[in-house]
Design a binder for these strands. Sequence first.
DNA 1: CCTCATTACCCAAACGTTTGCGCCAAACGT
DNA 2: ACGTTTGGCGCAAACGTTTGGGTAATGAGG
Lengths: 340, 340
Amino acid sequence: MIADQLGLHVSTVSRVLHAKPGEGLRAASSPTVERVRKLADELGYQRNPHAMSLRTQRSNLIGVLVPRLSDVVLATIYEGIEEAAAELGLSTFVINTRDLPEVQRARTEMVLGRRVDGMIFGDAHADSGFLDEVAARGVPFTLVNRRAGQHPAVVCDDYLGGRMVAEHFLELGHEEVAVVAGEPYASTGVDRTSGFVERFREAGLLIPEHRIVHSRFDARGGREGTERLLATGPLPSALFVVNDFGAIGTIGALRDHGLRVGADIAVVGFNDTPLAAELPVPLTSVRSPMHEMGRRGLHQLVRVLEGEPGETELLRPELIVRASSDPELYAGLMRKMATA
Amino acid sequence: MIADQLGLHVSTVSRVLHAKPGEGLRAASSPTVERVRKLADELGYQRNPHAMSLRTQRSNLIGVLVPRLSDVVLATIYEGIEEAAAELGLSTFVINTRDLPEVQRARTEMVLGRRVDGMIFGDAHADSGFLDEVAARGVPFTLVNRRAGQHPAVVCDDYLGGRMVAEHFLELGHEEVAVVAGEPYASTGVDRTSGFVERFREAGLLIPEHRIVHSRFDARGGREGTERLLATGPLPSALFVVNDFGAIGTIGALRDHGLRVGADIAVVGFNDTPLAAELPVPLTSVRSPMHEMGRRGLHQLVRVLEGEPGETELLRPELIVRASSDPELYAGLMRKMATA
DNA sequence: CCTCATTACCCAAACGTTTGCGCCAAACGT
DNA sequence: ACGTTTGGCGCAAACGTTTGGGTAATGAGG
């Protein structure tokens, strides 16, 4: 270490620079402390993290797995993770797994090989024995975005979100409804759907099987799911698409069939992605606190790293009603366009 | 190291496990090699990257700075970077700087403190003395997405992309055109705009100052820029918005003013983001090879790390014409909707 | 039998920290 | 005046690699 050009031993310097106020009062005399501090930042000293990790067996590194960062939902969650991590002096690796189990496995190994202190999974699969294995190996981790099994997770209260949408539809008098439900292995889609379905059941309305279609989480998935929906049976009057990008595909498909979203059919998305408000017919959507979810996910992990139990948090969603589902707003929109 | 329960010295094992075929023939006898290999993967041995980095002064870590990952363009570029890095056994940190110079500086220091081998900047500012400083300190880096100064960069040929849009407009007979030009410090917006403007000038048409407005790179920015455009002077017949998200905001603003995109006014975006094709009136856009840009950016950096000079690459854009600017496609769209 | 190469290893230093222990001197208590 | 505390620091081991320089055994060549 360069700082023993002060004639001090490295250990002394290490103590001075590292000691938390509480522990190391025995560190050095205050003049020495000053001298060390001064030289340290004159030289722009930064301690070598590899040496430190090697010695302490702690890397201050967190591995984050997501299906794909080009999904704005995951990207936003990750922004929250990264922000919170930076505040705590932690660094994060993020990896795309494309939701493929083999990739999840392989990349997890790779990340663990990097000796991360813990992991955050944003791509949990519901069935996942994989996560059980990881937990059994004693790797500390938390889940964000999707929950799975009993593993600690920070997620939106998707079930509640689904109920909110159902409530909204019921208030508007919709009885013939359908769901584009996303991937069956993702708790997000599943929970949103079941909240929706249950609320309808409570209202005495059973949604038939063929009115619930699974789909990929992107625009094309939404389009395909909607096409399948339109191909079978009579038209529903309202559609719940469990994520905004899917909803965009849905809207496209509906237009192709000559249906006016907001007038002929109501559509609601999920996540309240920034563009929902900007669509030609603004999209009603359930806002989920994605950034906050990331932040809390990281904090949850830190708690686990400190040996505390680690619990699941459900974040409160909020329904943002716009013209795609509200006749009045839609009428207002049309009026405005006509007079312009 | 656990593997000297074979009675071998760690150095021998190290050589066996590490030696590239070319160099370390002196390593060990083939039976020994076998024994070592066998035990190594029985034990699931992975070498400690911190110890290795400490010893070799090479971390196999790359720092990546982006304005924000929730911008799908940057997220996609980063996916390319990460993919290529993983193939080469490198790991990447990615950091959001929100395009703020102080944050760029601070996070760069932090990343360098992590002892990365090199950096990739996706958030270069045109004026950037900052990058010159970084270069002067001998930090190896490359730029992606935006170029700046003479630093090696992998970017889309934005100038050419701008020209393509101009060409397209000229073919359609547009003479009154305007540009929503993005942030003035980003080479992407600047180059796209200047390509566009110059092609028009070559056609003998000068685009007046007030027909070029700067804007943020998101939907709201596009909306605001467009509002300013609509507030001043007569309506242009075609609008070039230098990125797709901005174009979404533009489309919203135009609709608010009762203008039908594709019929009353042509709009072209940039990047051909996945949702461009899915919009109600599909958006004409210049496709830029974002994923590939990330991959090449990383490879470029690797070359620099190996001591080679590092050159700038311009990737070829491609104009994808859709209904938002093509009258025939628009008519087709309307016909389809009417008959549905 | 001696020399010399070659094979197959081992040795030890070094990378930059952290941390338990120990030592010296000064201050303190009796 | 003589133990005892304590403030201030040094010592050295350890973390897990890599790597230049050994060295002992083996075999070939003379």
